[in-house]
Design a protein around this nucleic acid. Structure first.
Lengths: 253, 253
DNA sequence: CATTATTTTGCAAAACTTTGCAAATTATTT
DNA sequence: AAATAATTTGCAAAGTTTTGCAAAATAATG
């Protein structure tokens, strides 16, 4: 039995089973523990599967589902939200992207009045509706996991909007890749949304520090400001400094 | 049994049960109390579930609490909804306009699967999301009273859509003026939505009989079908007959 | 046939699981 | 409201399984 054959068998098994144990594979393939272990080592190296104690699982390619994500670091998100809300004047026009951070901001903006808000997030729209004089929903295909619109139709609309302040959230923020996202579509839409604004905020709570998504989001540094809930790691601080990107850390009030 | 398998089993159980006890899980999975406890610790750390004394619960997922107005003639609307839902095949593409009747239909369609739905109503979108393979939101200015999009931006998008079935609701339906609406914008959008469909339903519960809105909604009779919850008054029946518009009355099942 | 690469085997260290017990919490009874 | 009973938690020792490594065995190559 040649190595590539064994690799194929292991991956085939993972197609059916979500997890496989080394024990079961030695049985099935008829080679020793150590051989299987090395196969798994190799396949994990080449990102074909994820190694776990006693075996392997399919690689987790998906982001954490929305329902769970809103829970993560709620306090930090709320703090960031308050900081940004304080910087948005009454009656301003604002662009809000989708995500749990932005929803926190929508809650924080509830006290404002006369806002003119644009968003692609259905929940943001529901939350912020009472505070709005004018509220515009970006249309397009709805990602039912996120409950927000994406796609070319959405993108086309965003290009036609212009606002005082745009706020987008980061999928990941690292010294290596700076701002990144986990979907191509989301990245493009966010980039465009950010461009709509005169003043442009990017939200990133500390859970995002060091996270690298698959898609880089590059937006001009001019008029741009990151908002964090904690001081960024030194590495990230330097990277931002080099790029001449300013940031603020939301106070713990 | 590898850790990821146990994790999957625990989460799968939570999909069915809202809460699980450590006791039950040790039984079901066949490992010790302490192992389950550590699995739950881990899953709670990664925000996949919420740890509670003696077990775990689903993470609190905040529903989109949209202020739904008191349902006038909810029973009739539900009956109409069921009648139309029964006529929409699995996997069909459907246009739904905004309003309480359409929301009732969205609920009735929850049992379907693989639908492709277009709508301008945020609540309809929230309700029907789980049943959809594909869900498209019409963008545009949101009427915060209705929580639905309107305006020229919305209208422009609707002209680009085509579906198997379109369902719009009537503002008023009378022998004198036939189909009418109370807003110019709504009327225009609804007319365009109706045109999108191969088969075209118009919902009108008996509360709408004899009501005359300020704006006439004229759509071709071809492929058109009104759906009522009660037999229309003779006068209306004649008017529809003259216009060669067919209608059905939803059964009281 | 010698050399090189791969696989198997054995063993100690590390990681994980089970088990038992005392402290803390919650529910029930008096 | 206090006392009692039942359950759950946190922790540590004992028991298993898995890992990492290196030597021995086997297979492949020129």
């Amino acid at each position: 039995m040649l190595a590539p054959q064994r690799h194929a068998l292991i991956l085939a098994q993972l197609d059916k089973e979500t997890t496989v144990s080394i024990r079961a594979l030695t049985q099935k393939i008829g080679v020793s523990r150590e051989t299987i272990r090395k196969d798994i080592d190799y396949l994990a190296q080449t990102a074909k599967l994820q190694q776990v104690r006693g075996g392997a699982t399919r690689i987790r390619t998906q982001e954490v589902p929305m329902a769970s994500r809103s829970q993560i670091n709620a306090e930090g998100k709320a703090r960031i939200a308050r900081a940004i809300a304080a910087r948005i004047p009454t009656g301003a026009s604002v662009y809000l992207d989708n995500g749990s951070s932005t929803r926190a901001l929508a809650h924080a903006l509830a006290g404002h009045s006369g806002l003119r808000v644009f968003t692609n997030d259905l929940e943001v729209a529901s939350i912020i509706a009472p505070a709005c004089e004018n509220l515009v929903m970006v249309g397009g295909r709805i990602d039912t996991e996120e409950m927000a619109t994406f796609g070319s139709e959405a993108l086309a609309q965003v290009t036609q909007h212009h606002v005082d302040v745009s706020v987008i959230s980061a999928g990941g923020l690292s010294a290596r890749a700076l701002l990144t996202d986990f979907s191509d579509e989301g990245m493009r839409l966010r980039a465009q949304m950010s461009l709509c604004g005169q003043t442009r905020y990017v939200i990133a709570d500390h859970e995002k520090f060091g996270v690298v998504g698959q898609f880089s989001l590059t937006i001009p540094a001019d008029g741009l400001c990151f908002v964090f809930d904690q001081d960024p790691p030194d590495e990230l601080h330097s990277a931002l400094h080099t790029q001449k990107i300013q940031y603020i850390v939301a106070d713990i009030v």
